[in-house]
């Protein structure tokens, strides 16, 4: 067991956890933030993407212990006072989600893209999404939503 302290969505959290606890397990099982989803075992689907210290990573491929002291933002932490993040708004407006399972990781991933590239082209968005698999939308409305959000942000 190992003691860790993380700031998750602005809240300081201290927990004692088994050493092999993945960040995704920590979020889902230990602090009940089930918005972060797990869709594969090989670090490819991207449903589990969260931000750690402002950068996107796959929470299924990071040990919680390794992130001791970090600031974590999950999908639950994006909206503030009930107001959706512009990226969430854009996904809603342009139907960038269907079943919603890949959506949390997708949204967290593209927010990171816009941090690095304020005005990405279609190709840059599609390339960035290499690490996020969606089986429902055919991606087209996701790309449109990212552009919409980029214009608003």
């Amino acid at each position: 067991m190992i003691k860790i302290e993380l700031e998750v969505n602005g809240k300081k959290i201290q927990k004692e956890i088994p050493d092999h606890t993945l960040l995704s397990t920590f979020l889902r099982e230990h602090i009940n933030l089930t918005g972060t989803h797990v869709g594969c075992d090989t670090s490819q689907c991207g449903a589990c993407v969260v931000h750690v210290d402002g950068k996107s990573l796959k929470s299924c491929t990071a040990l919680a212990a390794d992130l001791n002291g970090s600031k974590v933002t999950t999908i639950e932490g994006l909206a503030s006072n009930g107001k959706l993040h512009p990226m969430q708004e854009a996904f809603k407006k342009l139907h960038g989600l269907q079943c919603g399972f890949c959506t949390p990781g997708m949204v967290m991933s593209v927010i990171d893209l816009l941090k690095q590239n304020k005005n990405p082209s279609d190709k840059e968005i599609r390339d960035w999404l290499e690490g996020n698999i969606c089986r429902c939308t055919g991606y087209q409305n996701i790309v449109a939503a990212v552009k919409e959000a980029a214009a608003k942000m």
Binding site: S43, K55, S56, L57, K58, W128, E130, G131, N132
Partner: peptide, 9 residues
């Protein structure tokens, strides 16, 4: 290499 999240890690 990999995807953006892999490159971040």
């Amino acid at each position: 290499i990999g995807d953006p999240q892999v490159r971040n890690r």
